[in-house]
Design a protein around this nucleic acid. Structure first.
Ligand SMILES: [Mn+2]
Ligand SMILES: [Mn+2]
Ligand SMILES: [Zn+2]
Ligand SMILES: [Zn+2]
Lengths: 137, 137
DNA sequence: TACATATTTGTTATCGTTACAAATAAGGAA
DNA sequence: TTCCTTATTTGTAACGATAACAAATATGTA
């Protein structure tokens, strides 16, 4: 059981109720949600929740390194709790985003052709295993 | 000297004046421009050019494989003439996008963990060689 | 040249995101 | 606990990129 209140404090973020709920959601649902998906999921439980809060909170979390911001495809910003670099696969049929467990040599903090790398993303796109099986059946 | 008119015909796209100019621009300027950048660059020469035409044309070109659509960072769609897979580096200081010549094993048309890959993108972010040198000086 | 069809244009709509100021909540001192 | 100061949240309005649409124009062909 993770103490999200403490975790936020450790990152220098005062833990408001909204911040705790948003972080909790990202921890519980590994779906790489957009800001709007998180808002939709939480607004029932927190009827006064504002979208602005969700957007601001996610930006702040990403800046402090509590979560990671992803630019995958279709120009959509997505967020995830898992901050260790890994490969992503997006299905063009069902839209689901998968984590790929195959590791890769991350260039973070290294130099390539003279440029200093601070982020290294590998994004795949195609048809996922589940959609392939459904098509066969 | 490439015959862009012929090139478009070969891809099944009737070559209008606008289409030829847009393709020509992407061939001449390897800056990975956005739709708006292309519009701004061409509107002086073609005063009646419409943004809608630029957006539609780029989408059509990408669908037919004449050019490539890139989703790098900051949620911006960019386009380029070079359709062979390669690594991209975006500088957080000057905003420039560099092609990295280091090759990689592209997973296109292969399967990974059961998922069939149709696109494989590697995106780097950091401070470019030129900005590093400027900072030192 | 004239016609039928495809393309382009300009306007308006939409979507995700941000700016801003007023309302509210949180944490520390008394 | 109560009060006070400050940070956070809220709601609305603005924004920028893109798409939808119908009218105007250009294109290729006969
Ligand atoms: Mn992930
Ligand atoms: Mn490139
Ligand atoms: Zn799928
Ligand atoms: Zn730079």
């Amino acid at each position: 059981m993770i103490d999200f209140k403490e975790l936020l404090k450790e990152h220098g973020i005062p833990p408001s109720l909204q911040r705790i709920k948003i972080l909790e959601y990202l921890h519980n649902f590994k779906t790489h949600p957009t800001a709007d998906m998180i808002y939709q999921a939480l607004v029932d439980e927190m009827p006064t929740l504002s979208k602005t809060t969700v957007y601001n909170t996610l930006k702040a979390f990403a800046e402090k390194g509590v979560i990671v911001e992803l630019s995958l495809f279709e120009n959509e910003v997505r967020y995830e709790y898992n901050t260790t670099p890994h490969i992503h696969f997006k299905c063009i049929k069902c839209g689901k985003i998968y984590d790929i467990s195959k590791t890769f040599k991350c260039l973070k903090d290294e130099k390539i052709e003279g440029h200093k790398v601070s982020e290294h993303h590998i994004n795949l796109k195609g048809i996922c295993k589940s959609c392939l099986e459904n098509a066969k059946g």
